[in-house]
Nucleic acid binder design. Sequence first.
DNA 1: GTTATTCCCCAAAACGTTTCGGATTTAGCG
DNA 2: CGCTAAATCCGAAACGTTTTGGGGAATAAC
Lengths: 343, 343
Amino acid sequence: MERCVTVTTIKDLAKAAGVSVTTVSRALNGYSDVNEDTRKKIKRYAEELNYRPNAVARSLVTRKTRTIGVVLSEINREGAKDSLAFEILCGINDRAVELDYDILLFSTNSKKQLSKSYADLCKERNVDGAILSGLRLDDAYLQEVLNDTSFPCVLIDIPATHQNVGHVTTDNVSGAQTAVSHLIRLGHRHIAMINGHDEASVSKERLEGYKRALELNGIAFNPKRVYNGYFKEEGGSAAMYQILHDHPEVTAVFSASDLMVLGALRTMERIGRKVPDTMSFVGYDDIAIASYCSPPITTIRQDRYEMGYQAAQLLIDMLQKREVSHKIILNTELVTRQSTASI
Amino acid sequence: MERCVTVTTIKDLAKAAGVSVTTVSRALNGYSDVNEDTRKKIKRYAEELNYRPNAVARSLVTRKTRTIGVVLSEINREGAKDSLAFEILCGINDRAVELDYDILLFSTNSKKQLSKSYADLCKERNVDGAILSGLRLDDAYLQEVLNDTSFPCVLIDIPATHQNVGHVTTDNVSGAQTAVSHLIRLGHRHIAMINGHDEASVSKERLEGYKRALELNGIAFNPKRVYNGYFKEEGGSAAMYQILHDHPEVTAVFSASDLMVLGALRTMERIGRKVPDTMSFVGYDDIAIASYCSPPITTIRQDRYEMGYQAAQLLIDMLQKREVSHKIILNTELVTRQSTASI
DNA sequence: GTTATTCCCCAAAACGTTTCGGATTTAGCG
DNA sequence: CGCTAAATCCGAAACGTTTTGGGGAATAAC
């Protein structure tokens, strides 16, 4: 290392100001047992020598990094279409910045989860707490969170509360119920559902909402009319073919994500059936594309940004030992567009 | 702290294995001067006691954090529509994970830039290097990067190379030129441009490409036909009104971003003019919406994921003192859709 | 038998902070 | 003046690693 950039440390400051490092530390950290004049002097030198406290050294002794780990499983190329993960991240980031925390980004894939446990990630990097999103119910990480509650974390879209774990989610049951009720109000009686997959908490809940809406309106729930599209566009497309083939009587579809509606719409286009004239669709999420595609999709909006924002707030509340509810449930909203029509 | 979770340190390991901490460290870090049997033993104990080296302590002495700072200025709610920043982030993340680096996310807004300098951010948090995207030419951060070259960083979409700074971008001149040439090939002669803003490097370059295409085809460049839309949807919408008003002869528009085309399309719809029948559009970026909106937008695709991926690779190359070119320029590609028609 | 070499190991210093437990000086008060 | 209290300051330990500079024992070379 021929070119060692020398950076001023607390010792340099102490020497310059003619005091001990203790005093410098206490002066800069606002302790009361230091004379205001010396504090001024030290601050002046700090300014002059462009002193920046070394966060690593500080963390080592305080055992706090003021950093939260964000582990997202959807950080990949496909995530760009439904920017759900990104919006959550934005919300987390904004609140974290406001509260002067930094964000360490972890992405997880199945490979990583096998090689390195979630706790290891967090312990090794010494983040103070973590926010996890996009986990499947059968993910190894989730088990860890639930077993080892010594580490504060917030789950997104997975209901689980413990001493040290909180969660934020939306009311998926009521959201789905609203969606399906809307279809029923339009006169539809034969309503299929394209769900995500069995290991998603939200899928279970949205299915429940679908059921409730049907039963509340005296329509029998038929499990055969529920297909998994795995939250993917192609999955939605495939599911739609199935629905058309297996249940020609169906006139409306409730989908657990907008992305899958896009796939379904493609199927409809391929076989030349008009939407919403011959089939109505209600999606979920209100992704950006939903209002630009044709037809624009009627959907259940959930505020992912707010979810991230609240998750950060909750986690930091927990870190700072504030007494708050560990459970945050946000509302959803029906956005009516042109993919639904009355029968 | 009533409930202090005890975590095993290197000392515990040393005690358990009956050796010194030096030996434990050297054993686990693969040094050759430790007997294979003791290494085995130490590793067994490490496993057994679930030992995880404390990265903070390690960083303090090695002066390396194996962490790269990613500062994005587009991390906000609006960023969800054009997920440009997100795609870059995905690329960075993927490569960083592969090379065993972590990512510390910084978002910058004008407020932050005033209160805390870029160098401060990086010095304080001791990231090894940084990747910056979304900077304006008049941003304070940019000046810092160019002045203080002691800190390795990679700029995205801003051409500047130094000892310690690299950049990755796309060939914006040729991209824009391709776009406009495409319009000319379709028979258009009166072509307006909706540009970003004057403090964006890509805007300057795309303007240059626009000029070149015109001049290469014997069409005079008219600066009055270039409007700024500030890379915003509303900006594109407003610019389009201006174009229609000021230059009724125009039959085609080249826009420096797809998002602004969306705005322009809205304007066209509002005043009841058909696209592409009465006006052709070529955008830039190929955002997800571009292929779903109506009409789908002909555009210049740039691979933002790849840009992030390459940026991470470049930065880490620099960190590890490999001799590589500090300048990476990726190609773009014309994607023909239905927003363009021959005259 | 002596010396050189190799192999394995260790004590201590260092990284840059914070914090604990005093120490010194000054002020207040009878 | 003598005592207590308050106001300032400081030395040293601690945080958990890596690294430096050996050192001792066993083995090989002569």
